[in-house]
Design a protein around this nucleic acid. Structure first.
Length: 462
RNA sequence: GCGGUCUUAGCUCAGUUGGUUAGAGCACCAGAUUGUGGUUCUGGGGGUCGCCGGUUCGAGUCCGGUAUUCCGCCCCA
């Protein structure tokens, strides 16, 4: 058969993994530097855990897992009915699919917090690096399996958590050498907006439409708002928001004029001002209040974040996040506010590839430090013994696995794998216990006994 | 889920209005070179032209379906 993998999924070769791990290690190091602790959760969740958290569109992007051994079920009539209903409209039937692949890491985290609340010391900082799955149509930078790297603080209302996350974002992208623009907004602003224009029920439609401003323009947004049944009067009231361009402080003034008399609006503006005024390192990061930033996920209630690359032509969203005041409530633990962010390393990878900002040494990384070459079974066996000695000294090495008189072929192998040192062992070497070490880059050779070889390699490999 | 697009050797791609045995570069293998790689030269292997069906005397080329890639919509890391 012809081998293939599902669309939207990918294999990662050793050179891919070197680059992916470079990104991952940077982010993981910073997570730990900020005191986050790692957890993992299962790839699959009960489907009821996931549904209803991501909006209607999100629910349809959940990968469902068909129940096993349905042919042995005793409830086939019920299943047939459920299947018929599933053909009619989007729904979840636990008779057919009781499990699903996780869609993000935040909802499983909320579930974890509720289940383990007695063992957790709050406020809890956790990080989680695992793949998620979305039944989306693949495109460039849009995969059906991809990794999220989440850092969340839960059990604290303090806005200093938001400041810490901004600091973490700033530090991570500057270390990765990716120029970014960090946008933020507050869901309370959007809620207040819907209230002020008397379209409270349409908040989702309003936020989704406004979020598209930079993509479809003001006319596009207005058209979509009207199509969704928002009144012309309400749309008119929104115009100052859509028109406005200016500094963060000027935007706050616009918000005050528009929403200053609304309680929720006041609170949102306060939170925004706190972040902007925080006497922090924020001035050096590219922090922008974007009053049209909405984000689709339903569970956000306060601050929302989004990061985009600020260079090159491929500038997808590479980080998202925000504050959720009551995600755990649905699982039975109310009043547990959390805030978190999620790095999308697959897209960060694509952006870094385009910008060509991976350090050069990553692509040159060798699989090991030394290759032993040989001529026959006897010399190969001697090499295996030498390899044990080197590895005991923490020097990585490999013995060419096949026996061949063609030493050139063995050298070519070292050359292709960027292995920096080659040691050839034959009967002369075994007899004298002196080995010729060749440094591939220069071609220089050194004749050394085992102890000198170890010392030499340790010095050279530093 | 809807619309468009791509697919020819391991990789990147040519392939004329449908017409002999489908090509190139790189990679691979062998030799020049029997204890030392990168350069060079010579030779060689490798294709159900994504898959299924149709039109035709004849299909890589035209038509239908399907899968995949990428793009737009929707949504999002």
């Amino acid at each position: 058969m012809k081998p293939s993998i599902p669309r939207g999924t990918r294999d990662f070769s050793p050179s891919d993994m070197q680059k992916r791990n470079y990104i991952l290690n940077c982010i993981r190091k910073n997570f730990e530097l900020f005191g986050f602790q790692q957890i993992e959760t299962p790839a699959m969740e009960n489907i009821s855990t996931l549904t209803g958290k991501y909006g209607d569109e999100g629910d349809q992007l959940i990968f469902k897992i068909l129940n096993s051994r349905i042919h042995e079920s005793k409830n086939k009539e019920v299943m047939r009915k459920e299947f018929e209903l599933s053909l009619q409209s989007s729904r979840n039937s636990e008779e057919l699919t009781e499990k699903a692949l996780r869609y993000d890491l935040t909802v499983p985290f909320a579930r974890y917090v509720v289940m383990n609340q007695n063992d957790i010391t709050f406020p809890f900082r956790r990080y989680q690096i695992q793949p998620v799955w979305r039944a989306d149509r693949p495109q460039k930078g849009r995969y059906r399996e991809f990794y999220q790297c989440d850092a969340d603080m839960i059990g604290s209302n303090s806005l200093t958590n938001e400041l810490e996350l901004i600091s973490l974002i700033d530090k991570s992208f500057s270390e990765l050498n990716v120029p970014v623009i960090l946008k933020f907004n507050n869901r309370k602003i959007l809620t207040a907006l819907a209230e002020v224009i008397n379209e409270r029920d349409k908040i989702i439609d309003i936020t989704v439409a406004i979020d598209k401003l930079d993509k479809i323009g003001k006319e596009g947004v207005n058209k979509e708002l009207l199509e969704k049944g928002i009144s012309q009067e309400a749309v008119n009231k929104l115009q100052p928001l859509l028109d406005f361009k200016g500094t963060n402080e000027e935007k706050v003034e616009v918000l005050k004029n528009l929403l200053g008399n609304n309680e929720t609006g006041k609170k949102g503006i306060e939170e925004i001002e706190f972040i902007l005024n925080a006497n922090f390192k924020l001035q050096t990061s590219n922090l922008e209040l974007d009053i049209t930033l909405a984000r689709g996920l339903n569970y956000y209630t306060g601050t929302i974040f989004e990061v985009k690359a600020n260079a090159g032509t491929f500038t997808p969203s590479i980080l998202g996040g925000g504050r959720y005041d009551d995600l755990t409530g649905i699982f039975g633990l109310p009043n547990m506010s959390g805030v978190g962010i999620s790095f999308g390393i697959d897209r960060i990878y694509d952006v870094m590839e385009e910008l060509n900002v991976f350090p050069e040494q990553i692509s040159k990384a060798a699989s090991c430090s030394m290759l032993f070459t040989h001529f026959d079974e006897v010399s190969q066996a001697h090499c295996l013994q030498l390899a044990v000695e080197l590895r005991n000294q923490n020097i990585s090495c490999e013995v060419y696995p096949d026996v061949s008189k063609k030493i050139g072929k063995q050298f070519d192998y070292a050359n292709k794998k960027n292995i920096p040192f080659v040691c050839t062992v034959g009967s002369n070497e075994i007899e004298k216990q002196i080995y010729a070490i060749k440094y591939m880059e220069s071609g220089n050779k050194q004749e050394l006994n085992l102890q000198d070889m170890i010392d030499y390699l340790k010095t050279e490999l530093k």
